[in-house]
Computed example of a mutant assay.
Amino acid sequence: MAVRKSVKSKKQKSFFKSNTFYVGIFIAFVLIISYSQRNVLSYYLGFKTNKIIAETRVASLDKVLDTHIEKSFGIDISEYQDKINWDNLKEIEGGFPIEFVFVRATVGNDRRDYKFKKYWAKAKDNKLICGAYHYYRPNENSIEQANNFIKNVRLHKGDFPPVLDIEKLPKEQSIDRLKVGLQRWLNVVEKHYGVKPIIYSSESYYNDFLKEDFSDYPFWIANYTAFYTHIDSDWSLWQVTENAKVNGIKGCVDVNIYNGTSLDLKELLIH
């Protein structure tokens, strides 16, 4: 007896073809929306390195640093930079000297960066000007976050003021409530250390949410795509890239320009 082969009906074939078509349309729609909104996403989505996602720069890092050669250059690091050779940590690619380093100290209300204590001591040993920053989590208690930073960071004369790193938008509160939390963190930390903290964020975040309400504070602004021949006078620091190469560190590093000379930099430091 012959075995009858399974044959799909015309209705079944039509159903599969129709659904495949709509699935394809849906995927294409998602891709188009994602691409069109890539800049918005890059500004406001968090990711592993806690830094702003960048597109291709319009000028090389060498050209940017050459343009600001009279200014002071530095880097910032965290536990994501592993196995640093501190003896070789002297220059940014192109021969630009490293004068200062920021180290991530704390995250949210209960975590210290795993490498903070070690990297802070090593940076001091290498005679670098040091700064410590706190990565702020908008949906956690601001006072607890301030106390987390204070518990883990001792600052002295010649160090940078404490830094508040705010990059994400809140999920469970309004922008106004976020600003209240940021101000509370700033107040608690300023009272403890006796100096106004620096606020770090992306240029878009700064323009949209911080510029007007926190104008009394020094700002450290990240923009990886612009080529500024003159840095905004309201910015104390400009984070130029997250993709620099530095002798002594495997992988990419963030590079920063202080908006002034090495002599001017002393005015920003704790006296």
Rank of each mutant, 00 (worst) to 15 (best):
K211N: 00
K168L: 15
A226L: 08
E212M: 02
A146N: 00
P162A: 13
V189P: 10
I221P: 03
K191R: 14
Q183M: 10
Y228L: 07
D213E: 11
E212R: 03
Y200G: 04
Q145Y: 06
K157T: 14
P170S: 11
D208V: 00
L178E: 14
Y193D: 00
Y217K: 08
D165V: 02
E212W: 01
W220M: 11
R154H: 06
S215Y: 05
E167M: 08
I199K: 01
Y224R: 13
L169S: 11
N187F: 04
L155P: 09
H192W: 03
Q183F: 05
I231T: 02
K151E: 04
R184E: 12
D232G: 05
Y200D: 08
E203W: 06
V188M: 06
R154Y: 03
D216A: 14
A226K: 09
S142E: 11
D232N: 06
E203D: 05
N187V: 05
G194M: 09
Y206D: 03
L186A: 07
K179V: 02
I143T: 07
F149V: 03
V189A: 06
V188R: 06
D208C: 08
Y228F: 11
A226I: 05
F227H: 01
F209C: 00
F160A: 08
I198C: 06
V189W: 01
K196A: 11
I166P: 08
D216K: 11
W185D: 05
E172I: 14
A222M: 02
Y228I: 03
E172L: 15
G181P: 10
I221Y: 08
F227T: 03
D159C: 14
I221R: 07
V195M: 10
N148F: 05
G158L: 11
A226E: 13
P218Y: 12
D159H: 13
V153Q: 01
K191W: 00
I175Q: 10
Y205I: 05
D216N: 13
F227K: 05
Y217Q: 10
Y228G: 02
R154S: 08
R154A: 04
G158A: 07
S142I: 09
Y224F: 14
W220K: 05
V189E: 03
S174L: 13
D216H: 09
V153H: 00
W185I: 09
V189L: 06
S174I: 12
S201R: 03
L210M: 02
E212D: 09
D216G: 07
E172M: 11
S174R: 13
Y200L: 08
W220C: 06
Q173W: 05
K179Y: 04
